[in-house]
Design a protein around this nucleic acid. Structure first.
Length: 220
DNA sequence: CTCCCGATAT
DNA sequence: ATATCAGGAG
């Protein structure tokens, strides 16, 4: 049987967007930052780690390292220890340093504002680039597809894809561009508060009547 | 596909 | 004990 076209999905998508807006009117980036560089570093640290822990680490990290040059010249072992509790700390420390050295050498110590320049940085893929573009610069260049967006979008039947880039392409066809950044926040908030990975709370879910997985959210 | 990896909820 | 957490690179 044919899967539903994006055109056939359109009315249901509008209802889902309205319900998300109604349920999470204050959804926002929960990583704490005060400039684009801090958001870039926080997002690199957020891989397979809770925002809560990232914020715990960055609160002190951002006092010690204030510019790309600060990370670029720091002893690697010192950087590793400072971020150790976020996990994957050797990769993350190496990526942050290489990334910041590239910022100093190619971008005058500033964070670039294009997808191409961002994803050319070490440790920065489309997900991290979309977080920075959308939240630090207010640019809707794409849709953040993290573990929550992937799981919730699949459970809601908005995509059947598993590859994050294919999921992003399909979601971009379904959601108006001016909502891309908010849409990511809505799905992430929903993924954390209701549609959790291990024990989704379908009984109290505000999207229950719009969700094909309600009651048996077996999709990962 | 595998590897990287500590902290926490279940 | 084990799954999961705002992924990316080889």
């Amino acid at each position: 049987m044919a899967r539903q076209s994006t055109r056939a999905q359109a009315p249901r998508v509008k209802e889902i967007l309205a319900a998300l807006r109604r349920t999470y009117p204050d959804a926002h980036c929960e990583l704490e930052y005060s400039n684009p560089l801090e958001l870039l570093i926080a997002t690199i640290l957020s891989a397979q780690c809770t925002d809560k822990r990232v914020n715990q680490v960055t609160r002190t990290l951002f006092q010690k390292y204030r510019s790309a040059a600060d990370y670029a010249r720091a002893p690697l072992s010192e950087l590793e220890q400072a971020i150790r509790t976020t996990g994957f700390y050797k990769n993350k420390a190496r990526n942050i340093q290489a990334c910041c050295r590239a910022l100093v050498e190619r971008h005058g110590g500033q964070v670039p504002r294009t997808m191409e320049e961002l994803t050319a940085l070490e440790g920065v893929g489309r997900k991290t680039a979309n977080v920075v573009l959308g939240n630090a610069f207010g640019l809707n260049e794409g849709i953040v597809v993290d573990t929550h967006v992937r799981r919730v979008a699949r459970r809601l039947g908005l995509t059947r894809q598993k590859n994050p880039e294919k999921i992003e392409q399909e979601l971009m066809q379904l959601v108006p561009r001016e909502l891309w950044t908010q849409f990511s926040h809505w799905l992430i908030w929903h993924g954390r508060r209701r549609c959790t990975a291990r024990k989704p709370d379908c009984e109290h879910c505000e999207l229950r009547e719009l969700c094909p997985s309600a009651g048996n959210a077996t999709v990962d």
